[in-house]
């Protein structure tokens, strides 16, 4: 049997920005204060009355070619056969090179355990046949989770029928969290870039 390849699709058209996924994650994974494995990025656009908020649930992409696993010197971060990128708590030495290498800022030092953690697609739940806590809790069912290698799974059908996007595709890590209808302003990390064509300044050295 072919390997499974777990992935996630987040449909931003359905997201109402309720933070339920972040809360479920905190509770399920016992994520300490000050750090987050999953969070909701919120961006406001426009001037009243023509204003709107845009949301982007953020988490580890459990990348296909995960730079964190490639750069981990002890193989504490490793890729499971089903595609989930896991961290072995007993092996991690806390060198933090993986945090420095990940383009998505989704890894953190657990201040209680002094090791590095992140989202593992709730691998303990997945192993037990359940879906991750955020997927289960999302009230609008904006998050779909499943095996991309199974053409009959819901996620394969959603991926086949919709235009999707990933964060920073140029980083060549092959992110496995796909977004439908995510706004550029939420996906971009460089804020100045958005104001780029408003007022040219002296230091805009673009040639």
């Amino acid at each position: 049997m072919a390997h499974k390849r777990y992935a996630m699709v987040i449909d931003i058209r359905r997201c109402i920005g309720c933070h339920a996924c972040s809360v479920a994650c905190k509770a399920e994974m016992a994520v300490p204060l000050e750090v987050n494995a999953t969070w909701l990025k919120i961006v406001e656009k426009g001037v009243y009355p023509d204003a709107r908020r845009f949301f982007l649930p953020r988490t580890c992409n459990n990348c296909e070619d995960a730079i964190c696993a490639r750069n981990c010197p002890t193989k504490a971060t490793y890729k499971r056969d089903d595609g989930i990128v896991a961290v072995d708590q007993h092996r991690c030495i806390g060198c933090k090179y993986c945090i420095a290498s990940c383009p998505y800022d989704v890894r953190y030092i657990n201040p209680l355990k002094n090791i590095v953690q992140k989202c593992y697609f709730c691998s303990h739940r997945v192993d037990a046949g359940l879906v991750p806590a955020c997927v289960e809790t999302c009230p609008t069912r904006a998050i779909v989770f499943g095996d991309r290698n199974d053409p009959r799974s819901e996620i394969s059908q959603v991926l086949a029928a919709n235009a999707t996007n990933v964060l920073k595709a140029e980083m060549q890590t092959g992110p496995q969290v796909f977004y439908i209808s995510a706004d550029e302003s939420t996906m971009s990390n460089v804020e100045e870039e958005i104001n780029y064509y408003t007022e040219p300044t002296l230091i805009k050295l673009r040639f």
Binding site: K41, V43, E44, V47, A51, R53, N195, Y197
Partner: peptide, 10 residues
């Protein structure tokens, strides 16, 4: 075009 505010991120 510049009216974009990041309200929350981590």
């Amino acid at each position: 075009h510049g009216d974009i505010n990041v309200v929350y991120s981590v």
